[in-house]
Design a protein around this nucleic acid. Structure first.
Lengths: 165, 165
DNA sequence: GATATATTGGCATTATATTCCAAAAATGCA
DNA sequence: TGCATTTTTGGAATATAATGCCAATATATC
C-alpha cells in the first residue's frame, strides 16, 4: 500500500525518471516546472521512501544473443507454506528466471525465462527446474517475438490520484 | 544477433550498469579494473551500439497502489500479417500493458497488465482489450504475488562468450 | 622484429550534484 | 479573517563527476 501521498509534481518526476533514468536534475526540474533544488529533494525523497526502488540500464537481449523467451507454468506436488518458500528461494537464484509469480488458477507459478537457444532451454529444464523442490508439472510456451516490454508504470486512473482543486 | 563482440570488460560494465544505472563512471571504472576514460568510452560505445537500450528508474508498483498483475492469453479470429499488426499497434498504446509477446501454442499473444484493482481490470477488459481489432478469445490468470522481477540479463553460458586465453 | 592500429591513463575543462540559508507559500488555529 | 507555525521553494557556493584531448602503452599485422 502507498506509503505516502504523491502530489502532481511527484508523479511528473516519476514519469520522467522512468523514461530516462539518467536525466540531469536540471533538465528534470525544467520539465516538471520547478527549480533544481526542491526538485532534487523530491527525487531523493522518492528514493528514500522506496517509491523509486532502483535505477538500471536495460540491455537489449537480442543484441547479446539472448533470443529465446519461454513462459513456464509450474505445479508443485504440495502447496504448504514451506514448500512454496523452498521453491521461491530456489527460483530466485537462477539468473535465467527474469520473472516469477505465484498464480491463481491451475498453475502454482508462472515464470519467464530468457536463454540463448532451445538447447540452453533444455539444459535449464533438466538441470535447474525439474530438480527444484516440489516441482511436479511443467508446461512451456515460447515467445516468438516480443511486442511490448515496458518498465514504466501506468498512471493511476482518477480515484487514487489526489486531486487538489 | 549480436552486432559486435563484447569482451570481458564490456560484460563487466553491463553487469554493473544493469545493477546500478546511476553508478558514477569513476566507481564503475574501479569495479571493472580500468581507468575512468577508457571505461567511459566503452560505456558510450555500448550505448551507441544499442546494447544498452536505455536507462530507467524502476518504481515499485505496490508503493503506488498498482497491486494487480494479470496475465492474459489472447486469440485472434484471423492470423494474417495485417491482423497481427493491427492488434500489436493497438496493444502498444495501452499503458497498462507492461509486456506482450507473440506466442507459440494455442494463444496468439500473452500480455501482462498492471492495474490497481479488479474493477480496473474489468474496465480494461471491457473498454480496451475486447474492443481491439480481431480479438476473439481471452483467458486471464492473476498473479497473487510477484516472486522474482529482474531486468538484468543472465550471463551467456560458455559458447558465445568469446574466450581469450 | 618493425610498423601500423587500437586502447589506455592522466590532466584540464566543463557540466552536474549537493548543501545551506533566507524568502515565500501553504497550513493550522483562534 | 488574521496571526503564528510549518513546509516548501529558489539561488548561490562548494564538492563531485563527466568529458575531451593527447601522449604513452599495448596489441595486432606483416
Amino acid at each position: 500500500m502507498p506509503t505516502y501521498d504523491l502530489d502532481e509534481l511527484d508523479w511528473k518526476i516519476l514519469e520522467q525518471v522512468q523514461t530516462d533514468g539518467r536525466i540531469t536534475n536540471h533538465e528534470l526540474s525544467e520539465r516538471i516546472g520547478l527549480s533544481p533544488s526542491p526538485c532534487l529533494r523530491r527525487l531523493k525523497h522518492l528514493e528514500a521512501e522506496g517509491v523509486i526502488s532502483r535505477y538500471v540500464a536495460l540491455v537489449d537481449p537480442s543484441q547479446v544473443g539472448l533470443g529465446v523467451s519461454a513462459f513456464i507454468r509450474v505445479r508443485l506436488d504440495q502447496q504448504g507454506d514451506h514448500h512454496l518458500d523452498a521453491f521461491e528461494k530456489a527460483v530466485a537464484e537462477i539468473p535465467e528466471v527474469m520473472e516469477c509469480y505465484l498464480m491463481t488458477g491451475d498453475a502454482d507459478y508462472q515464470l519467464r525465462v530468457l536463454v540463448d537457444s532451445l538447447a540452453s532451454f533444455e539444459d535449464f529444464l533438466r538441470y535447474n527446474l525439474t530438480r527444484m523442490p516440489g516441482v511436479s508439472q511443467v508446461t512451456t510456451s515460447f515467445a516468438l517475438r516480443p511486442v511490448v516490454y515496458r518498465t514504466a508504470l501506468p498512471a493511476l486512473s482518477k480515484k487514487s490520484a489526489k486531486s487538489r482543486d
